[in-house]
């Protein structure tokens, strides 16, 4: 279970204080793949960083009673001058995962081949995403936080990812943020809409999409 209680995030900008998230309270129960819809700049990524614990909210609390992945999106926290394999080792170490097992899985899943031995800054964005995605799949999390699934790789890789998600549906839960309605439709059981710092939750994806499209 992940619970958000009164989560508020404000940033100081040159034009004064900007409230990105305003008093958000929501539960993410295990087993319900949840989509969060929002336009560009609605604060989706900020919300996800709060959920993952990468950033602390200005006010309110986030309770994580399960293992939660880092925010999986385009780049991930890779170091450009290190190779894919070196980055993999680092992430295994901080998550206490078995390096050989993870390596075997990632090599098979991400299809990067010899690129595993190349510095990550030689990768295309698709390749980086594949590495990040494969890695997060190899380390077993209860919750996966995903930023714009559509960005991850080509259609073949997306199909593979979808299959992998479906396979682990009974023990892993997805939280997906996207501005794209179709992404949320493919992956989620329920959805919420984020606008102007406020989150409105719906039990049904179609209700959420209807609300999102009206606004």
């Amino acid at each position: 279970m992940i619970e958000l209680r009164g989560v508020t995030k404000r940033y100081r900008t040159t034009r004064g204080i900007k409230t990105v998230l305003n008093d958000i309270s929501i539960d993410f129960p295990p087993g319900t793949n949840m989509g969060i819809l929002g336009r560009n700049g609605a604060g989706k990524s900020t919300l996800m960083r709060m959920i993952s614990g990468a950033e602390l909210p200005t006010a309110g609390e986030v309770f994580r009673k399960a293992s939660v992945s880092w925010l999986i999106g385009f780049s991930g926290g890779f170091h450009g001058s290190l190779t894919g394999r070196e980055n993999l080792r680092f992430i295994c170490r901080i998550y206490n995962a078995d390096i050989p097992t993870v390596t075997a899985f990632v090599e098979d899943f991400s299809e990067l081949g010899d690129y595993m031995e190349m510095p990550v800054n030689t990768y295309s964005s698709g390749m980086k995403a594949k590495l990040a995605f494969g890695l997060s799949m190899a380390i077993d999390f209860d919750y996966y936080l995903i930023d714009e699934v559509t960005a991850v790789g080509d259609s073949k890789f997306q199909k593979k990812s979808k299959e992998e998600f479906d396979r682990r549906k009974d023990h892993s839960t997805l939280l997906v943020v996207s501005h794209s309605v179709s992404t949320i439709k493919t992956h989620c059981d329920a959805a919420a809409v984020l606008e102007e710092g406020t989150l409105t939750a719906f039990d049904n994806v179609n209700d959420a999409i209807g609300y999102y499209e009206r606004h």
């Binding site: 960083r49 993952s52 614990g53 780049s75 926290g77 170091h79 901080i94």
Partner: peptide, 9 residues
């Protein structure tokens, strides 16, 4: 900063 995206770092 990229590393600080991992919540335990």
């Amino acid at each position: 900063r990229a590393l600080l995206a991992y919540p335990q770092v």
